[in-house]
């Protein structure tokens, strides 16, 4: 699964630490998300979407093989 968290984070001018604190996870989790090493739960995806004022579909995208 691909995601545009890094881009959205840059648009909103947040560091990984800022974003982590806003949605209540650790900085390392944001790092793993951006690197595509971790697929978040529905709750976390919805929190991210809400924070960036986007829909979940605009942030996350299915890849071949998913």
């Amino acid at each position: 699964m691909k995601n545009s968290i890094k881009v959205q984070r840059a648009i909103h001018n947040l560091t990984q630490q800022d974003l982590a604190e806003k949605i209540g996870v650790s900085r390392q989790t944001i790092n793993a998300l951006e690197a595509g090493k971790y697929v978040p739960s529905t709750v976390l995806s919805l929190k991210l979407a809400k924070l960036f004022s986007k829909t979940v579909n605009e942030i996350f995208e299915l890849e071949d093989g998913d």
């Binding site: 900085r27 390392q28 989790t29 793993a32 971790y38 739960s41």
Partner: peptide, 9 residues
Amino acid sequence: KPEDEMVAT
């Protein structure tokens, strides 16, 4: 200390 869903995974 930072208990979140990735730690659970």
